[in-house]
Design a protein around this nucleic acid. Sequence first.
DNA 1: CCTAATTGCTTGATTGGATCAAGCATCACC
DNA 2: GGTGATGCTTGATCCAATCAAGCAATTAGG
Lengths: 149, 149
Amino acid sequence: MAVTSGPVAASTDAERAMYDFVDAYDRAFESAAVEHALSVAQACVLGRLTRPWGMRELADELGCDASNITQIVSRLEARDLVERRPNPDDGRSRQLVRTANGEAVNVAFERSFEFARTAMSNLSPREQDQLATLLRKALGTTDRSGPAA
Amino acid sequence: MAVTSGPVAASTDAERAMYDFVDAYDRAFESAAVEHALSVAQACVLGRLTRPWGMRELADELGCDASNITQIVSRLEARDLVERRPNPDDGRSRQLVRTANGEAVNVAFERSFEFARTAMSNLSPREQDQLATLLRKALGTTDRSGPAA
DNA sequence: CCTAATTGCTTGATTGGATCAAGCATCACC
DNA sequence: GGTGATGCTTGATCCAATCAAGCAATTAGG
């Protein structure tokens, strides 16, 4: 059930478009993960390791318990996708990094997860900018990209 | 780990906006579910029952095994949120409906899940239309709302 | 220094979600 | 009315998530 979205009652047309979009995104993510024998959670973790991360740090980033990260990482480590290194500056902490194997799998995963690229390729550059601006505005985020008025 | 999105490598600015948006959506959904002691999967199922559904039908809709639905529904039923009725037209099938209780919880859940409404309220009506059009175009869906040339 | 509190991570237990194989009841078709 | 499909459930297994507890290393105070 990759799907969080649903036919929430009394939604406007714009809201419906949002649901459909998020739904498609989530399904595409899960499907790409499964292609490479990863769970969603594992793909999430693997994807963040563009630099060494501490376990605690990852737990905070992903908004879950540290012990959850422990077990997910243990499974990734058992498959030689990540490595727990000692942190030279703090004996309690670990530095989590991708192995060469993990790099390769992550690259393959990102290639499979073509949702974003496909979606964008359906839009002109100008439309892409518009979309980014609208999404950020909808989120209430200060738009860091737009020419904004 | 409500989050499927992640800092996927080499993403453009527009892709980043997408990730952030989906991430925010998913987190909001889960958070609203938890507020009402529902899991994401339970909220998903409960939310679809605007009419009676068969178990098989639900499984297809949500893209999972029928036995998965069985257990989720069993938990919802144990909490008196849904009811399994016999299908008068087919003795094998069930008609899954919300109880009065389930209706109330679902309404409360939808009220809590204000993400869509909040997001839209940050946009003018014209911008909402634009966003819907762009999202549908990005999905490659035939836009059913737009003036679309 | 040396203790005490804090911090980072792990373990164990428990719950829920997801999938698969198997089974049972009902239906549909011939 | 027997055979095969269909709808749902059960049982087993694995993973994700959370909580309580614990250990080790660090930090803070005396």
